[in-house]
Each structure stands twice: as C-alpha cells, then as structure tokens.
Design a protein around this nucleic acid. Structure first.
Length: 225
DNA sequence: CGTTGATCATGC
DNA sequence: GCATGATCAACG
C-alpha cells in the first residue's frame, strides 16, 4: 500500500482509498508514509486528520474549501470509543458574527460543508497509545431530510441570536444537534461582532460544532443499515 | 463524569 | 486575523 500522489478522480476512487486504510493503526499508516508519530495530542491536535488527508490524497495544507473540491466532499475524522460512540464534538466552520443576515440556511457555510462528508471513525480513547489506534470503517454521508431539518433549525436559531446582537449570551447549551463555541488559539483572541444596539463590540471568535449525540446518531444509522 | 469553554499547530 | 485540522482540561 502506498500514499497517493494525486487527488482521487471520482467518488469511487475516494471510497476505495478510504476502505483500504480501514483496520490499519495510525502507527502503521504513519510509518508507511514516513511521518513521525507524536507521543500524545497535547501539541498535535490535528495530527490524525492530516495523516488521513495524506492517505486519501486530499490537497495538502489547510484550505478554506472542501477537502475534495472536485468531488464536493468534506473529510472528517471522528474519534470514537470502544462502542463506536464519538468522544468529541465535530468542528464544522466559523460562525460569521458581523451579519447583515440576509443570510439563509440554503447559502450557509454549514449547509455547504455538510452536504457530503466522508466520515473516518478512529479509535480515540486516551488509554490507547496513539500509534496503536486503528481506523474503523469510513463511509460517505449526506444528511437525510430529517437530519438536515435539525441542522437547519439550530443554524437558524443560533444565527438569529447573532443577528440580534446576542452573541455574548449564546452558550454551548443552545442548539439540539449543533452548538456555538469559542474557536481560537486562545481566550485573548478577539474579533468584531455587534451588540443589541448595533454597536461594534469585540468578542471571542465562535465556531459551529456538531454534538456527539448527533454524530453518534449518524454512525449508528449508517451501520444499522 | 460529561460538557463547556479554552487551547495547540500550521498556512496564508 | 481567519481558516484548516481537532483535543485538552477545568468546572458544574
């Protein structure tokens, strides 16, 4: 097995590459790709995602686009426990805080990002050394009408609060399947937003995250089929 | 003990 | 500063 040197040409090739790494440990994949393995993720939080990107032939580096633009596919690795349940929430994208919110769900970043996702579940329990964690079964997913309705509802609720200048009062408890949380290099990072009177204020950048229960439901639905 | 809020690395 | 990849760890 070798690291691909080009992007997958179609969905079939992407799926085939994804299936090929199923069952391998992160250590094996790193060794085959000549990539150093971190002892832990304290300072390497994005390492697994980048390793998977390498093996699937995603364009290196971070781009403000989908991982496979030609295929319209977004790649998400998902740490799971021994029962196949997600251990962490899933980051979707930044939330615009300076809204002339003529924005709609249909044109939102969230909907665009989640139109088609290649989920790659990976063993993530801390007791398992990083190198020994294995890739589970990757699969392509598109939101069902019901799932999209849930996402849309949360997006509209959260976006409305932002539009009303209530950003500061939104907590991660809002939203049934998707939440809004700080997303920055530190708590010192600030960005512009608006208060209820429309005055410019400074606040921590926020991102949209999928709750574990929701991604767990996606996994369950897929493997129950 | 699960979740929220904070944090780490990197590129442009 | 924003966007990518996420996990860490304090707290309720």
């Amino acid at each position: 097995m070798q690291v691909p040197t080009s992007a997958p040409q179609d969905l079939a090739e992407l799926e085939s590459r994804a299936q090929a790494i199923a069952g391998f440990s992160l250590g094996e994949l790193a060794a085959l790709a000549s990539i150093a393995i971190p002892a832990d993720f304290k300072r390497h939080k994005g390492w697994t995602g980048q390793l998977i990107e390498t093996w699937l032939g995603a364009t290196a580096g971070s781009k403000p686009q989908q991982d496979f633009p030609e295929l319209g596919v977004e790649l998400k690795t998902l740490p799971i426990n021994q029962y196949g349940q997600p251990l962490e929430t899933t980051y979707v994208c930044y939330a615009p805080l300076k809204l002339p919110p003529l924005s709609s769900w249909e044109t939102s970043n969230v909907k665009n990002k989640l139109q088609c996702v290649l989920w790659v579940p990976v063993e993530g329990e801390r007791q398992i050394p990083v190198a020994e964690r294995r890739i589970a079964t990757p699969f392509l997913w598109q939101p069902s009408p019901a799932q999209e309705a849930m996402l849309k509802q949360d997006w509209e609720e959260l976006t409305e609060l932002i539009a009303l200048g209530q950003v500061e009062s939104v907590t991660a408890r809002h939203g049934e399947v998707m939440q809004l949380r700080p997303k920055a290099a530190s708590g010192q990072v600030l960005t512009d937003a608006l208060d209820a009177q429309g005055n410019r204020i400074q606040t921590r950048p926020r991102g949209f995250y999928l709750r574990k229960q929701f991604t767990g439901f996606i996994l369950e639905s897929h493997f129950a089929r």
